[in-house]
Structure formats: C-alpha cells, structure tokens
Design a protein around this nucleic acid. Structure first.
Length: 484
RNA sequence: GGUCUCGUGGCCGAGUGGCUUAGGCACCGGUCUGCAAAACCGGUUACAGCGGUUCGAAUCCGCUCGAGACCUCCA
C-alpha cells in the first residue's frame, strides 16, 4: 500500500490503487496511428502517461508499460490523403503503408527523445500481431458474440448486451446511440447498427491484406489493442490509458472484446487524459488548428513568434491536471518559461547553499506535500505549487534570511531533484553550459568588473550589451556577477 | 437530435461545504544596484447569472446563459 489514489473512469471516482500482483504494475496505453506526424495534442497524452509511468516507478513499482503503434486498418492510401491518378502511376513516389508508418515512426521516436519521454517496455505493432487478433476473433465467435457475413466478422452487440453491460465505461446506452445513415458499404451486413467490425473483407483498393479463416481481409479498428494487451499483460491487468476521445467507442469495444473472448474485463483502472485545446477548441488534424511538436521547438509555427524548449512545453502541461482540458496560448507559455527558469535556478542554487545548525523550516512537511500531491490522482499542478514553496524557502536561505541543516538540505535536494527531474521529467537546461565557455566568461566578467571598479560604465555596458546580443544575460548580484 | 463535461481574479490553472494568501505569469509597491536587467520581499484583483438547501457554498440542487467533448478515424 503506497497510498496512491487513481481516478477510475469505470467508477467515476478516485479509488485506492492496489496492483493485481504485488509491486508489479501492468499498464497499457493506446499509442498513435502513424499515418501522419503526431501533433502537440497527441503528445500531451503521451506526456501525461509518461508522468504516470515515472511516478509509479518512483514509488517503487515494477512497471510493464505497453504502448502500441497502430500500423494497420486505418491506412488506406498514400499519406492518408486522396491519391491522384498521376501519383498512383509514379511507382517511385507511391508509398506502401508500412513505408508511411516507418517514416512517421522515426519522427515519433525522435519526438519522444526530445520531449524526454521514457521509452515504454515495449511498443508492439498491429501488423506484428495479426495472428493473435485472429485467434481472439475466433474465440469471440466461438462464444457466440460475433458472426461472420460475406468474409467479414462483426461483434454482436445485442447478444453481448444480454450478458454484459455494453456501455460500462462510457455510460452510453445503445438505444441512445445515434443510428445515422453512414456511408459504409458494410452497413447492410450488420445485424444491428451498433455492431462493429472485428475483421473486414478485403477491398480491391486495400493495400494491406492478410489471410484469415474468413478469407483475405484486414482487422477491425479495436481488436489490435485487445490482442496486444492480452499478449503482453494478460487477460486482466492494472491500468489502461488513452486519450479521452478514445473512450467511446474504442475503449468500450475493447472491454466488449475482452469479455466476449476471455469473459474478463481487461483493466481494473481506466484512465483518460483530456484534450489539448487551441483557442478553446480541441486540437485536431481535421480542424487544422494543430501544430507539430517539432515546429514549436524550432519556432517555425505561425501561432507563436518565438521558439520554446520542449522542457517548457512539458512544464506547461504539468501545470494542469491530466483530466482537465488545457488551453494553449503564447502568454501561458511565456509564463511557464519564466516559472520553470525560477524553479530550475533555485534547484541549482540549493546545491551550493551553506548549511547551519538548525533549519528554520519544516522541510519534511514540504516533502510530504510532494507525495501527497502525486498520490492524489497524479496532481502535478499541486506538486508544482509545493515545489515553488520549496523555491521560496531556498531563496530565503540563500539570501541569509533563513537557515537549513545539512540533513534537511540533503533531503530537500534529493527529493526536489527526484520530483523535478525523475517524476516531472524536466531537465536542467541551465546546467548545460559549455565547459570551454566557462573560463572565457569568467575572464570577460573579470574585465567588466575591473571597468566597473574604475567607474568606466561605457566599457562595462559595452560588454553587457555585447553579451546580450550573443544570447547571454549578465546578472549582477550583491557580491558577484553571474550569467546564463 | 442524444449522452456528458465545463464556466475561478488581466492570462494559464489547482481547489468540491467552513481553514487553501493554491501555484505560475502579468501588474503595483519596496529592497538591492552606477544605470538597467535579474534576484528577493510585500500587495491588489475571483469563483458566469438567478433562485434554493444549509448555521455556513466557488464547492450540493434547480433554472438561465455561454463554451466544449463524444455519438464517425481521432491522443
């Protein structure tokens, strides 16, 4: 019992978290569909679950973290766009689906490094698990919850509904689902409008086709997650996560598939990360209001007039709770940039702070706040507030207005580093100064100090302005001058 | 149309019955400083509206207005 509470979408309440197997946690998170570049909104979900992963590790769990890569079923043509006849003719330019996936996966993996995401234990692909998907479909059919029509297999929601609660996760009732006329040629094959495809018969245009007991085709939209989570984590595991937009139908259908095949609900805890908004609206490809994680780091997006480090983006996201929507604005990013800088600088100065006999503050209670915040459903904003409480104390001690004992200093330093670096996944950018630059700067600042001693303000300011143009800020302290 | 969520001070954003100065940024005042910046200290501004429950509500209930999500691939 580590005191962690997690909001479970299944129950709609925070519940005490106890893993199925002592000290072991199995976590599955729905990953990206790599038919195009992941945007910042996609990244928010992965960053939030990275926080979950990091905190679970920090409090001592052995975590198996599975996050899939969808590379089948959704990709119909080149780059997911309308294919023109000329492009089709040019064989060299026509990309195979897996070429597209590979291309964007390389970028996605790079983004994970840039944004300091810990790699999952495994990132399995849908195409690598076709056999497993087929086997689960066979089980579902054998249990009477699916039927085959014309080389396609559909999940039988009405039959399922008689034994299980379809809508357990999303709270939806089948009767209330919109029964709209959808322009799907398969619509006529379904016994019931809410039935969903487990296996689809191949079309002539399909670029990905596999053999199955029902003929050539490709897997349905939801079965891959059931197959891969079952394979790597078992029929029942601890946490299933994903974006809020996947709650229905994707996650609801995963539950149906698991119950329909193994008779067991897949996950004890369902966690949903909320959306990233731009001007109050969900960032999405279809709305076109998205930007790429790479663009914002490089400052090449039109939405902002400057570049921000991935560290700032991460910190910005950590300042809101994962279950809340978050509105991205330039002003908010600027606020995060400054706040983060104050936090990391305090952390650096803590290392060099001098100690006294006694502490003015109750350091242990501050540290307890860190854990209390994260134990309360990963409340990172509260954690950050507590960290800034530490910042304020550190600055007071540094200015000689308060004191800290060696023991407390070690405690505070260790825990603040733990939470800032390991849990929040931030990095100390200020600490990456070029070693060759250090002596040069020391020399330059020495010359400037001499000028200042001689009241030669012209030379002093010339140096200061020149350094500023070079991107180096000179900070005149009480006794010494520093730079960054 | 159906289901659901949200509306907090200039901005972002926690908080779900009384005690949080939440926090960050901005702003104002002060300290420091050759000046400036940076640092530091202190301070102002709030709970969409109306009604109800309660000794007491930003927090519970109802209504109104507004925003958004899902119902179709979607993090």
């Amino acid at each position: 019992m580590k005191g962690l509470k997690i909001y479970n979408t299944l129950s709609g309440a925070k519940e005490n978290f106890e893993p199925i197997h002592k000290d072991m946690v199995g976590m599955y998170v729905c990953g990206p569909t790599l038919y195009s570049e992941p945007h910042m909104g996609n990244m928010r979900t992965f960053i939030n679950f990275d926080l979950v992963y990091r905190y679970l590790l920090h409090i001592g769990y052995n975590v198996k973290y599975v996050r899939n890569i969808t590379d089948a079923g959704h990709i119909t043509n080149s780059a997911g766009q309308q294919e023109d006849s000329i492009g089709k003719a040019a064989r060299l330019e026509a990309l195979q689906p897996l070429e597209i996936v590979y291309k964007y996966n390389v970028r996605f993996q790079n983004l994970q490094k840039i944004y300091n995401l810990l790699p999952p234990t495994i990132e399995p692909t849908a195409t690598g698990h076709i056999q497993e998907q087929i086997e689960i479909i066979e089980k579902i059919i054998a249990n009477g919850f699916a039927y085959e029509v014309n080389g396609s297999v559909y999940f039988d929601v009405q039959t399922y509904k008689a034994s299980y609660n379809y809508g357990a996760l999303s709270g939806r009732k089948v009767e209330e689902l919109e029964n709209e006329t959808r322009e799907l040629n398969a619509q006529g094959e379904k016994r019931f409008f809410a039935d969903f495809a487990l296996w689809k018969k191949a079309n002539e245009n399909d670029m990905q086709i596999w053999r199955s007991p029902w003929g050539n085709g490709n897997p349905g939209w939801h079965i891959e997650c059931t197959a891969m989570s079952t394979k790597y984590l078992g029929e029942t595991f601890d946490i299933h996560g994903g974006g809020l937009d996947l709650k229905f139908p994707h996650h609801e259908d995963e539950i149906a598939q698991s119950c329909g095949s193994s008779g067991k609900s897949p996950a004890k805890f369902w966690m949903h990360a909320n959306m990233l908004n731009v001007n109050g609206k969900k960032m999405s490809k279809s709305l076109g209001n998205f930007f790429l994680p790479q663009e914002i780091v490089e400052g090449t997006t039109d939405l902002f007039d400057k570049a921000y480090s991935p560290n700032v983006l991460r910190f910005f996201m950590m300042q809101s709770h994962y279950r809340s929507t978050l509105d991205l604005t330039q002003e908010a990013l600027n606020a995060s940039e400054k706040g983060l800088s104050r936090l990391t600088e305090a952390l650096e100065s803590l290392e060099n702070i001098s100690v006294s006999e006694k502490s003015t503050f109750d350091i242990e209670s501050i540290v307890r706040e860190f854990y209390a915040a994260m134990n309360d459903d990963f409340n990172a904003p509260i954690l950050i507030a507590a960290l800034f409480d530490g910042v304020k104390k550190i600055n007071l001690i540094r200015d000689g207005k308060a004191s800290i004992s060696q023991k407390d200093k070690t405690l505070l330093l260790t825990e603040m580093q733990n939470f800032v670096l390991d849990v929040l996944g931030l990095t100390l950018e200020g600490g990456q100064k070029d070693n060759r630059l250090k002596p040069v700067m020391a020399l330059v600042l020495e010359l400037r100090q001499q000028a200042r001693s001689n009241k030669d303000w012209g030379t002093s300011d010339l140096i200061r302005d020149g350094l500023k143009n070079a991107g180096i800020t000179v900070k005149d302290g009480k006794d010494s001058t520093s730079w960054k």
